Amino acid sequence: MNEKKSVTRLDSTYMDQYDAHVERQGRKKKRLLRRLALFALLTLIVTSSLAIYHVQQRMVYAEKKEEYEQLQEEMGSLKESEENLREEIELLNEEEYVLEIARSNYFFSKEGEIIFKLPNEEPSY
Rank of each mutant, 00 (worst) to 15 (best):
S109L: 06
L85Y: 12
R31D: 11
E111D: 13
K29G: 12
I115T: 11
L33G: 00
P123V: 13
S12P: 01
Q70Y: 10
E90S: 15
N2C: 09
V46S: 04
K29H: 09
D11R: 10
I115M: 04
N84V: 10
L44P: 00
R86K: 14
E23N: 09
S124G: 02
K28M: 14
S109N: 04
L91F: 06
F39N: 08
Y125M: 04
R9F: 06
R27Y: 02
K65P: 00
I115D: 05
M1H: 03
K79C: 05
Y97M: 04
L85Q: 14
E3V: 09
Q72N: 15
Q25W: 07
L78K: 13
E94F: 08
G76W: 06
L50K: 08
G76A: 14
V98T: 12
E69V: 08
R9I: 12
M1A: 05
E111G: 02
F108N: 09
K65C: 09
E69F: 12
R24I: 03
H54G: 00
R58Y: 03
N120D: 09
Y125W: 05
E74V: 14
L32H: 03
M59C: 03
N120R: 05
Y125V: 14
S77E: 14
D11F: 00
E74I: 11
S49Y: 03
V55C: 01
Q25R: 03
V7S: 02
E113P: 01
E111F: 05
M15I: 06
E80R: 11
R34N: 04
Y14P: 00
E90M: 14
K5L: 10
K29R: 15
P119W: 04
L92C: 07
E95W: 13
I45S: 03
N105L: 13
E94Y: 14
Y125N: 12
E94S: 14
L99E: 10
R58G: 11
N84E: 12
E113A: 06
L42H: 07
N93T: 02
K30R: 09
P123C: 03
